[in-house]
Design a protein around this nucleic acid. Structure first.
Lengths: 205, 205
DNA sequence: CGTCGGACCGAGCGAGCGTTCGGTAGCCTC
DNA sequence: GAGGCTACCGAACGCTCGCTCGGTCCGACG
């Protein structure tokens, strides 16, 4: 082991060019978003990927494994982006908050289907995967709580309850995945900037 | 017709004593929250209500009719409460915003299962009911947008995009239904007050 | 040239699904 | 006390579900 918490080259957390998801999972994401996990049959999944049902089972052990792969990818992608955003902010607490919220909003706009599933299909995961997903969600939440707590301790922010404020900010960003429209009047970048502003105002002295 | 947009006695929108939902629907809400609409069978629904499957079909025409009754009740209850809150606020714009957000947060805390379903099971509704639910959601959103727009026009608030700010506030409150715990350290009333504060800060001059 | 393994498919398995049929038990009315 | 109503239930219908069996095709390798 080499202590891998500081990768040599950090990802560009603002880059959403293409999602490296294999085509089968990409079509599965869209189908699950439209009808939900239990509302989608393996036949529908196979048809969406231009494949037979056994063809699908060649790549994944079960329908459950498909949703698990999607959810894991979502949580991993968000975590790596927000980790990179924190690194970019350095020790400036205001900047840490701004970039974290910007990162959250960008993710929920650019990866809206993925983010929607991550928020919606928790209950469709079997116990092991569910526990893992909850842990990832909690770790993600803790990152923002820590920013708010440190900022409050150093007098940069005024927050009565950092955990509650973090939840308000996170669910505010989560909501973006429900209504964002790439063809709409607001770009993801504009929304992210506005949301960073909302977060700042919530904690302003 | 007597012009019924001003009922003689308005409901007390802060009172959440008991939900007037019949027992069958009450148990259905909990089961749907746990497993989702498509993840719940009519046999499970019947067992949760201590009933046989035909017994369940005596009260509702179909499984779909059960979810529709629940969703309609949720949207109607929220609408009547926020309507009453607006009436209580009178013409004071700051108060309109405060009470509206307080009402939203209270609803999503006290009726967390109901609110969770309303936000989550839209895609499980068949076209007619779905259209009705979307219309109700839009009407609900428009109410807050109007408050923000009027407040901005009168110089009470500073909001670049009322629609976007309204969505941020609404999804912030929607999130309460995902993590609120009646046995937790924060009461619904405390949360509602904090959230009204967040909303105020977002639009503050 | 042979055979090996990855990528896939048609057909079908048992289980569970939403729904319905033909009842029964208890109560109220005339 | 006959008839009708509400509130149910056991059994089963036709269908779809997740999943698997026993293949075929095809490019890579020796």
């Amino acid at each position: 082991m080499t202590g891998d918490d500081e990768p040599a080259t950090r990802m560009n957390w603002r880059d959403f060019e293409k999602d490296p998801l294999p085509p089968l999972l990409r079509t599965a994401v869209q189908t699950f978003v439209a009808h939900g996990y239990h509302g989608t049959s393996t036949r529908t999944l196979a048809a969406a990927a231009n494949m037979s049902v056994p063809g699908l089972y060649h790549h994944f052990a079960s329908k459950q494994a498909i949703i698990v792969a999607i959810m894991d990818h979502a949580m991993d992608d968000l975590w790596r982006r927000s980790d990179a955003a924190l690194a970019e902010a350095g020790s400036d607490l205001d900047q840490q908050l701004r970039l974290h919220v910007e990162c959250l909003a960008l993710f929920h706009a650019h990866r809206k289907e993925l983010a929607f599933l991550a928020a919606t299909e928790l209950r469709s995961l079997e116990p092991v995967a569910r526990a893992r997903h909850i842990a990832a969600r909690d770790r993600q939440e803790r990152m923002l709580v820590e920013i708010l707590r440190t900022g409050t301790a150093h007098g940069a922010f005024v927050v009565a309850d950092p955990r509650q404020a973090a939840r308000a900010m996170i669910t505010m960003c989560t909501g973006v995945s429900q209504w964002f429209d790439a063809a709409g009047p607001l770009s993801a970048a504009q929304i992210a900037e506005d949301y960073a502003g909302y977060a700042e105002r919530i904690v302003r002295r």
